[in-house]
Write a protein that binds this DNA or RNA. Structure first.
Lengths: 148, 148
DNA sequence: CTATGTGCAAAGTTTTTGCAGCGTG
DNA sequence: CACGCTGCAAAAACTTTGCACATAG
């Protein structure tokens, strides 16, 4: 169940990676539907398992849309997002600006900005002691062991 | 189903608000368990419905922990969070510092910081046209109509 | 060959809803 | 006493898993 020592490049894996690069922050289900157009026998379970492996390997990142649904991102560099509260869509945002950030986002992306959120992700003192050897990944994160 | 014209202050509502102020970013289920200690007949559905009403009324905010689970926040002013990837806990963070942010968070809160995320929340151009008359609320957000 | 990956289907977790009765203002 | 709230139970939405078979390296 832990990440495999060696990751094989299978057809479904490749297809998922491809769609991930093509679509903009797709959900697991969006990837599933797209991948199935070429490989009709792929299952949703496989998509989820692959997304987990890919994230653990540091090849992709997980993020959360405004509703809490997971979305996946092929971009690995640090960058910001705008999340639509109505449809769940997530766009990348340029943070190079001389004007107030909110204002320039409204101009550049047409979003009506209602707020923002800056979160740091890490491990709290109580969970930290046993530095479990992970290190990559950011954002939303790793699969839930069990939801508590 | 839209927000009621008038919000009544019922015992469960009051209890939820109390626990919300007492606990630190509780999940719906945590609130539920706490409220039940005093009002054993309260149902989870009621908790969710109340949290929604309270958020819509601008009395509380919704946020997402590192796993995507919703948590609720009684603080209404803008502030930052640290989210533990292991246990899901969310703490408030002070952003007044002369040192690099990450570093000062590690010192002040004992977290091992693995990354951060800055997201803007709003309404995308495609959903915007019909400004649906909402305006309060920020962060994670409003109830999902249907998840798509 | 063998460890890793897969389809399928069932189960899990969190959140939403319908309904009939209850209670606040 | 009307409209909002509630408990209860069923359903929905998303994600995880067990298992037997398939396959990359």
């Amino acid at each position: 169940m832990a990440e495999p020592a060696q990751m094989r490049m299978t057809p479904s894996r490749r297809a998922i990676l491809t769609e991930l690069a093509r679509a903009c922050h797709p959900t697991a289900d969006e990837i599933y539907r797209r991948v199935r157009r070429r490989l009709p026998r792929v299952s949703l379970g496989t998509v989820y398992r692959n997304l987990e492996v890919l994230q653990t390997s540091g090849l992709i990142r997980t993020l959360l849309d405004a509703r809490g649904q997971r979305r996946y991102d092929a971009r690995l560099d640090d960058h910001c997002h705008v999340r639509c509260e109505e449809c769940g869509r997530v766009d990348d945002v340029r943070v190079l600006s001389e004007r107030p950030l909110e204002e320039s986002i409204e101009d550049d992306h047409g979003y009506e900005i209602r707020g923002h959120q800056l979160s740091f992700v890490g491990v709290c003192p109580e969970c930290a002691p046993d530095a479990k050897g992970r290190d990559s990944s950011i954002d939303a994160g790793r699969p839930r062991p069990q939801r508590r």
